[in-house]
């Protein structure tokens, strides 16, 4: 095993080009577990800790440019207004110690369906900026996850920045686990209201081979809110609409039975989370119409 320590982003790209099998390590919270437990012996470890720009973020007009290594602690503390869904999700990541090290780049790089950031990114809308010595490109989050623990990165590419749409309405995130802290998601759900475009977006975690949006549910709700004039009136959403939405979200799941839980439970829990979050976000929208910070 070789340990590569690029001092700059350019050096990192060069190293990744020279050694496409190199495993990037930033927070280490996934990679080191695999090394400690002898599940993985990469030829090269590519340390990204020395590249300061990866730990920086910038709040723009429309988006937040979030460096791949910005720790979850910073997101949950400093970006609650701009990225409320992701801030809530960040708060559920593992433990304080892990949140101090791990960042969204790690979740995206690993692309585990259980990564906590995914549902929030899907719901908010985001693009993943990746780069190689060949150049840079932006991958829409909807196209990023390509299979179980697989993503759209080429072998020589590194994740640099995630461009996340700033919240223009309430967002929520929940995950279910069998412990009240420090738990891997049995399943997770994120919901974002986008009053500007009068649309909603969703994200489901750990209930399908990849993180997914519940598109049919989104389309149903978009139509129902539109037809009922809910965005303008701000009236309480009809329970039957909320139920139908939750059912359609659940129908978008394609879960498995595993040691953490059953497929049937995952479908059920996603249904409940979708219904509750629609209630929470809509109530926030009705109260102020402005993006509110998460309750946690």
């Amino acid at each position: 095993m070789d340990f590569l320590r690029p001092a700059s982003w350019e050096e990192a790209l060069a190293a990744k080009a020279a050694h496409p099998t190199a495993v990037p390590i930033a927070g280490g919270t996934d990679v080191m577990v695999e090394i400690n437990f002898d599940h993985r012996r990469p030829e090269y470890l590519l340390d990204l800790n020395r590249i300061g720009e990866l730990s920086e973020w910038a709040v723009g007009e429309e988006t937040v440019e979030l460096g791949a290594s910005v720790p979850y602690t910073r997101i949950m503390e400093d970006l609650r207004a701009e990225l409320p869904g992701l801030a809530l999700a960040s708060h559920t990541v593992a433990s304080p110690q892990i949140r101090n090290r791990g960042g969204v780049g790690g979740n995206l790089g690993t692309a585990s369906p259980a990564g906590d950031a995914h549902p929030a990114l899907l719901a908010a809308g985001a693009e993943v900026e990746v780069e190689s010595v060949r150049g840079s490109r932006r991958i829409p989050i909807d196209d990023f996850y390509t299979g179980v623990k697989r993503n759209a990165l080429a072998a020589d590419e590194l994740i640099k920045t995630v461009h996340i749409r700033k919240a223009d309405g309430p967002q929520q995130f929940s995950k279910v686990g069998t412990r009240n802290a420090m738990v891997i998601a049995l399943c997770a759900f994120g919901l974002a209201l986008h009053p500007g475009t009068r649309t909603v977006r969703t994200g489901i975690g750990s209930a399908a081979p990849t993180p997914v949006r519940a598109r049919v549910a989104e389309e149903f709700l978009n139509a129902a809110l539109d037809e009922g004039g809910f965005w303008e009136s701000g009236k309480v959403i009809t329970p039957s609409v909320a139920r139908q939405f939750a059912m359609l979200v659940s129908a978008a799941c394609n879960p498995i039975d595993d040691v953490r839980g059953t497929a049937a439970y995952r479908r059920h829990a996603v249904d409940i989370m979708a219904r509750r979050q629609l209630g929470w976000t809509w109530e926030q929208y009705r109260r102020g119409g402005h993006p509110l910070e998460g309750a946690a």
Partner: peptide, 17 residues
């Protein structure tokens, strides 16, 4: 609601529902 005092804890699954 302080989710830390609710079932689900930090995972923000209920605000009392």
């Amino acid at each position: 609601a302080d989710v830390r005092a609710l079932p689900g804890g930090l995972s923000n699954t209920t605000h009392g529902e």
